[in-house]
Design a protein around this nucleic acid. Structure first.
Lengths: 339, 339
DNA sequence: ACATTTTTCGAAATCGTTTGCAAAGAAATT
DNA sequence: AATTTCTTTGCAAACGATTTCGAAAAATGT
């Protein structure tokens, strides 16, 4: 409506538009008196420069995009929180996109953003993504990209993640030390590198401790219903697993649900440990042993690295592949039961 | 870099820029043959119009902002999910801002957005917000605003929320019917209308059932540590509450933590019910009775209404104040114990 | 007093898209 | 055949901020 713009300020002050613009950007070629006059009026009228005009002229949007598979997941919420801990101070804005674990959506989103709407993107790929050309196209175009958590070895872009294999090893080792003989790994369908890392940790623990029973790798999805179906079958088979290592929180929840339903006792009949960022895990019945990922830090670091790229700063070697350690919290779901 | 724009397309096709533009927007004044030629090349070169140029020219950004107090809360995550269920099909983009329960941040964010960066905003106010002028300024400027969940009666903008008072009444009634004599209400500090609505429901239930013991209203914050401190004191006082009605999930979690710590048994010693959107509430020890808010629907409806405003459509009367019902799920934390 | 530098400011081009208006040609009407 | 109408296209002016270039004014040096 009565939008206040540079022209209006200039007219009011009897100055040229260019002078007003320079004054507000604190240019050295404007006298401090005029700067003061300009700033005063700008403040009084609540002037905010039109972002589209600036973006068009300067060819930068002061906006980044965050593309995640889903948001109803504590991990990703915490990551966003971490990202938001850096963006405002940089004067940046954050666009959120959900791929809903769908490669086509992910590709379309990236295509949609391909014309200056954002200065960089942070992405955690969907579990149906196996081709990374849509991401590589950005790298080729010279637009900063950072991958976090669900990363890819194929792409020459910074990866920020946690020590998945190591923690998966420890989780499996933990179950073995608590007496489990037959541990099943609940992984995500698809061939995400993160799932592979966790699977590798699981397998190498079994190998290191020379477990005779073959590994049991169960692939679950994002659908609670089918997951429970699969888990019911799993627990009916002989030999029944006496240890469950869930690669993601949702699968642990599904496991609890099914155990309750078919009257299997945790930890007596089966012990459970899971990657999870839920504060309430300690309140579960029984309290769930978890591997907590540094989600907030991952978001913060990933954003910081993205800004370094945007500002064309050099990255330190360790910033190209940053691994932030997770933490294993032992609780009742993996306790030894005397029987 | 080698950005493809209208000028490039025009030159390639030997057409005027305006013709290409019109062809891509499917204008009636362009022959179908040229349209075809233009579209073909545009597709081949992967042309995406520069959003800043369009926004500048058309004075609309195809972007909305969502301002929430925090994101590490299942409720708000689900709301965002609901919002995102409408935005892509409208060709809109979603900016996320966190006020961190800080009125000043909230005001600054709104100020920052005041120049066409967004076509509308959706906001759930912070609990330190008691003055609504910063929001009213938007309404006055004619830019669409929608409030959700944490709404305000003062403002003449659409409010989308749940039936807080009614459900608070039911929750309190539920505790009373399960034998509680001394129910404490855990509300949020500040004077949010949503807290008031829930408090009113609590009080009117006590009144209706002619409870002699005075109401006990406890104000908690977003800091776990201080909350636990306060709760410890609460449980030491005599008479000790035998029922807890938590207005938000976090407070129920804090209650569980403290009860575990000081060895109070739920539901024998104290029964607990809470507003909560956590799927895992059923897995708590004991399973937590909850009032589930239709978070996804709130997000979806709020976004739909915002788009109606943006498209300058008339709102139905019920859309100006939309109340979506919550659901009470009774679980073990409010079970009657035979003793 | 004159030349030179420095300071301060304005005019105009620019970013890429959209759109009002004019113009040219084809088709239809009289 | 002359006129009007319709279709299709191009030209040029927006949108608002930034920035290059250059001019005027002031300050400095000789």
């Amino acid at each position: 409506m009565d939008q206040v713009n540079l022209k209006k300020l200039a007219k009011e002050l009897n100055l040229a538009v260019s002078t007003v613009s320079r004054a507000l950007r604190d240019s050295h070629e404007i006298s401090s008196q005029t700067k003061e006059r300009v700033r005063e009026l700008a403040l009084k009228l609540g002037f905010q420069p039109n972002p589209h005009a600036s973006s068009l002229r300067q060819n930068k949007s002061k906006t980044i995009a965050v593309i995640i598979p889903e948001i109803e997941n504590n991990f990703f919420s915490q990551v966003i929180n971490g990202i938001e801990s850096v963006t405002p101070s940089k004067g940046y804005h954050v666009l959120i996109y959900l791929s809903h674990e769908d490669y086509n959506k992910e590709r379309d989103i990236l295509q949609l953003l391909r014309n200056g709407r954002v200065d960089g993107i942070m992405i955690s790929v969907s579990n149906t993504t196996s081709n990374y050309d849509h991401i590589d196209a950005w790298r080729q175009a010279g637009i900063p990209v950072v991958l976090f958590d669900r990363t890819s070895e194929e792409l020459d872009v910074p990866n920020i993640m946690t020590n998945d294999a190591e923690m998966a090893f420890k989780a499996t080792e933990h179950l073995l030390k608590r007496g489990c003989k037959n541990i099943a790994f609940l992984g995500m369908a698809g061939n995400l590198s993160i799932s592979n890392r966790r699977k590798v940790g699981y397998l190498s623990a079994l190998e290191k401790f020379k477990i005779a029973t073959p590994p049991q790798i169960v692939e679950l999805t994002s659908k609670d219903y089918t997951n429970r179906e699969i888990l019911r079958k799993l627990f009916q088979d002989q030999p029944r697993p006496d240890g469950i290592f869930a690669a993601i929180e949702k699968f642990a929840v599904n496991t609890y649900e099914v155990c309750k339903e078919i009257n299997l006792h945790i930890p007596q009949d089966v012990k459970v440990i899971s990657f999870s960022n839920l504060q309430a895990a300690a309140l579960f019945d029984p309290a769930l042993s978890t591997i907590i990922q540094p989600a907030y830090d991952i978001g913060r670091e990933a954003a910081s690295i993205l800004f370094k790229l945007i500002e064309k700063k050099m990255l330190m070697p360790y910033e190209k592949k940053m691994i932030l350690p997770s933490q294993l919290i032992e609780r009742a779901s993996t306790a030894v039961t005397g029987q």
